[in-house]
């Protein structure tokens, strides 16, 4: 296995940064997230980031095109986006799975989202194996392997004092070959993953939910929800967006920005009717989408077990507990 001691990781990233935009997980006093590598940054190899990496491909606010009215016609111009080749280093199995979910939404079923695709196509993913799950992690229950992320170009293993790199795709191999001089070839066995605090049994849940749209369980589950968007905005897979505009006199631009099905105006129609009038319908939609609708459309769950929503929900809503409730519910 190609290895590098942890103390020399900065050197590797610095070298890579000459050829790529390198994004690394960094923890500051206030928040942890993926940021572009700069000399002097400390990469956080412990635990996952608070903010998921989804905004790298799908920014919270993204300009789409600008327009200018000229007489009876409109000039439309796209924003020229200069997307560099980028490497995301240290992405966890759960977030790798979330990128797979986003790929399905934005790139399959006959429609390719160019805003997403331009950034996604130029990205190499260097996944980092988890050995110590956080209190709120439960990816294993969803069939993910915390040590081995599917879809990664390179898988990195924590070997204690060093990191071991294994290429998983030709692009990954190319990348490792490019910086081969920085690595030492060592026979190493990756560490094992420690036990998970949270578990969820999802077998049969989508099938069961198919019959639970009108089930009284939603009254109970939604009761304590406050209807904020912390869960959706921190979720690595939530991908709803709204399109809005900024118009000044005869010109302006359109942009898209994250939206959240927990907000009252999310489903409010022109004229004021709201088909999801209360938090019961909204909470139901959230969990139905995660655990049933997405499975039905794309064949996988829209939850990756990262546990961010459990960690940050103001009222301690816990998706594993909700899955348990669904499992126990009488249909």
């Amino acid at each position: 296995m190609k290895t590098i001691v942890k103390s020399r990781l900065a050197e590797l990233l610095q070298t890579m940064a000459q050829d790529f935009r390198v994004l690394v997980p960094v923890k500051s006093e206030t928040v942890s997230q993926f940021v572009p590598w700069q000399e002097g940054l400390t990469v956080n190899l412990e635990g996952n980031t608070v903010l998921p990496p989804k905004d790298i491909f799908f920014p919270q606010t993204e300009k789409m095109y600008k327009f200018k009215v000229k007489g009876s016609s409109v000039d439309i111009e796209e924003f020229a986006e200069d997307v560099q080749k980028q490497v995301i280093f240290g992405i966890r199995s759960c977030d790798m799975q979330s990128i797979d979910c986003l790929d399905k939404v934005f790139l399959t079923k006959g429609y390719e989202d160019t805003f997403y695709k331009t950034k996604r196509d130029k990205t190499l993913l260097v996944a980092l194996a988890c050995t110590k799950p956080q209190d709120t992690c439960f990816c294993e229950s969803l069939g993910l392997n915390p040590l081995e992320a599917s879809g990664a170009d390179i898988q990195v293993y924590d070997l204690g004092d060093a990191l071991g790199f294994v290429a998983k795709t030709p692009e990954g191999e190319e990348l490792l070959a490019k910086y081969a001089s920085l690595f030492t070839e060592v026979n190493a066995v990756p560490q094992k993953v420690e036990g998970f605090n949270l578990k969820a049994e999802v077998a049969g849940i989508p099938e069961k939910l198919a019959k639970m749209f009108d089930h009284p369980i939603w009254d109970e589950v939604s009761q304590k929800c406050l209807g904020c968007g912390a869960c959706a905005y921190l979720c690595p897979t939530c991908h709803c967006f709204d399109i809005s505009g900024n118009v000044k006199a005869d010109q302006g631009y359109k942009f898209r920005c994250w939206d959240c099905c927990m907000f009252s105006e999310y489903t409010r129609m022109a004229g004021g009717h709201n088909p999801r009038p209360s938090k019961k319908e909204r909470v139901r939609n959230r969990f139905m989408h995660k655990l049933y609708y997405f499975q039905e459309r794309y064949g996988q769950l829209l939850c990756t077990g990262c546990g961010r929503c459990i960690a940050k929900c103001p009222v301690g809503m816990d998706i594993t507990a909700i899955i348990e409730k669904i499992k126990e519910a009488e249909v």
Binding site: L51, A232, E265
Partner: peptide, 26 residues
């Protein structure tokens, strides 16, 4: 600049008791 506009601050707040928040108005 860090705010992600999840509105958790508003929704948890007992002083925020408007029937419809001005931020939700279209």
């Amino acid at each position: 600049s860090r705010c992600i506009r999840c509105f958790a601050c508003r929704n948890v707040c007992p002083a925020c008791n408007c029937r419809e928040c001005c931020f939700d108005q279209a």
